[in-house]
Design a protein around this nucleic acid. Structure first.
Lengths: 215, 215
DNA sequence: TTTTGTATTGAATAATCATTCAATTTTTAT
DNA sequence: ATAAAAATTGAATGATTATTCAATACAAAA
């Protein structure tokens, strides 16, 4: 039985690109399988079949099932981090527009879609993976929160808003996002990304009453 | 080998109370086991051992493992519903005090503790149990939301607040609660029940600026 | 006490699944 | 073209675990 590499190159050394083909196929297949079947029913056999490689290979390639699973969480975490980091760094953009972009990003279809939310939730909810989840995500969460507080602080100054501290606003925002991501998973008819984004913007509106861009 | 019933009665027919002893012991053991080991590593053997009955009995008593698991979710759901229903029915209490009681209830140690939050999250996050979760919880969620909107509507009238609709406030509150329950699980040092309650009250403060009780 | 029915046990069964690895195919180097 | 190295397969293994059920313990009735 044969299995040809996609995008194979014929005249050089096997490159990282090539190695990454199966690697990424397996990561993608893992995310899809977790979303479709749940973590409990995600077997190496299912993932391998979806990725169109053999079961033995999937295990060999990632050393173990757990390592494959955690690698797919790491992938999502990296992807997410890149997306918000870019926005926080846009120093030439007005802070209010920047925070609106953060919200848009958190509810963009690339980030807040059912497959990916399934994976986040699967990992943080399973006791076995919670240590890995915290290792991978906690530090980034801290940085995100820190940047968020800085941004809120700037907006507070501009808007002369003193009642609500940057920490409070950031914590409230973050917990809303987590809650709404859940809801996108359960009831996507009602909780569309647009609906969630607008609800969060409305929260900011309640803090910054005279700022029209949040309305 | 023998196993005596606790609270056994000697001079009547076996009563519901007696039957319930093992029933409830198994439910409690299930909740503790899910919280401690996670849904994936919750075996009948673990639960039975913790409940101090035999493995065979646990299975026999609840027909199947899945039925035992779902019964423990049902138990939590009923308990939660009773607690908030009571508060919504306290019509003689001022609406603002009533909503404060709802918040207090949602972050009381009886409701929002790590064991019980673990179980909620375990069920809604596992694809296999999501249908059961929705069957058990969706209808109650709707009632809760409906009552919440009614309450917010009253408060809006009292406070002459028009900017934020009852639905928006209710949705925002609900998503914050879900998000904060998660955080209680991850980082209980920072996210104490008190901290979460105050954060939510501060949100209400942002809506009802001239209402001191939310501060 | 003896009988009868019910509760409970625990060991056996059968199914599932991660992991291993010898065999095969594919790629690279000569 | 051929050999050597690397990638990939898939079947076998061993561990885990839900479920079953015959055997036992217990309670109630006679």
């Amino acid at each position: 039985m044969m299995k040809a590499l996609v995008n194979k190159k014929t005249s050089e050394h096997r490159s990282e690109t090539e190695i990454s083909v199966n690697h990424q196929k397996l990561i993608d297949a893992t995310i899809e399988t977790i979303a479709k079947r749940g973590l409990a029913d995600t077997t190496i056999a299912h993932v391998a079949k979806r990725a169109k490689v053999s079961q033995g290979y999937a295990n060999f390639r990632f050393k173990s099932k757990d390592n494959l699973l955690i690698s797919s969480l790491q992938y999502l975490s990296d992807e997410y981090k890149k997306s918000w980091q870019k926005i926080f760094e846009e120093k030439n953009i007005d802070p209010i527009d920047r925070i609106i972009r953060i919200v848009q990003n958190d509810f963009s279809s690339k980030i807040a879609n059912r497959n990916k939310i399934s994976v986040w939730i699967a990992f943080y909810s399973e006791v076995k993976f919670r240590p890995s989840y915290l290792t991978i995500c906690q530090r980034q969460d801290e940085i995100y929160s820190q940047q968020m507080e800085k941004l809120v602080s700037e907006i507070n100054n501009i808007s002369n808003q003193k009642e609500f501290s940057p920490k409070e606003v950031s914590e409230t925002y973050h917990s809303m996002v987590d809650g709404l991501w859940q809801r996108i998973l359960f009831d996507p008819k009602i909780y569309t990304n647009e609906f969630c984004k607008n609800l969060v913007l409305k929260y900011f509106k309640s803090i910054y009453l005279n700022e029209d861009r949040f309305a």
